Computed example of a mutant assay.
Amino acid sequence: MITENGTVIALKEDRVWVQTIRQSACESCSARSGCGQRVLASATGGRANQVLVENTVRAQVGDEVTLGIDEQALLGASLIVYALPLLLMVLASIVGHRLSDGADSWAMLGALVGLAAGFLVGRWLQARQDGRYEPRLLRVNRIASDTCI
């Protein structure tokens, strides 16, 4: 399970908006000196992200919470978002090239059609997963001094 801490900033029916700042993973990673993600995080100043998740732990605005996503779900979502469109783009480009006896314009058109088809199929596959690729609220992080009052 990959986890990240954040703060609840708004309630929306049975869901909450959680704000996280990307920087905690970069500080503990052994590859931080040569990583592109660290460069992006430093360029954006550890920019805050907001995510809408189901409120399964009865969090309130201002609560510090822990979000989590399963590693297999993250890997599956990454394959759908990145690998599927690229694979279909390459395959459609090859098909366009072969069907046109080597015309580059048909190969480029095939690549564009394959890329668009990859995004559409990926969106369709994601919609069928019923929240499998979404992060979940794991817990509300309470400070001991808050409970003693």
Rank of each mutant, 00 (worst) to 15 (best):
I69H: 06
A48V: 09
A107M: 04
S93L: 11
A43P: 03
G76S: 14
D14S: 10
T7M: 11
G76I: 05
A73V: 02
A41R: 10
G110L: 05
S28H: 09
D14I: 08
G62W: 13
I149D: 08
L99Y: 10
I143N: 14
L137H: 00
Q126V: 09
L74A: 15
L125W: 15
D146I: 00
W106Y: 15
Q126M: 12
L67H: 00
P85D: 09
G68Q: 04
G36L: 00
A144H: 13
L40M: 10
F119W: 14
S105A: 13
I2N: 00
A117R: 08
Y82F: 15
V51E: 03
D101I: 09
G6P: 04
L115W: 11
V51R: 01
A92S: 15
E64C: 10
G102E: 03
P85V: 11
A92M: 13
A92R: 07
G6F: 08
R58L: 07
G96K: 05
A41S: 11
V95S: 01
M1W: 06
R47W: 07
C35W: 04
Q23V: 01
W106H: 09
P85M: 12
S42R: 07
L52M: 11
V121T: 10
I149E: 10
A103K: 13
V39I: 10
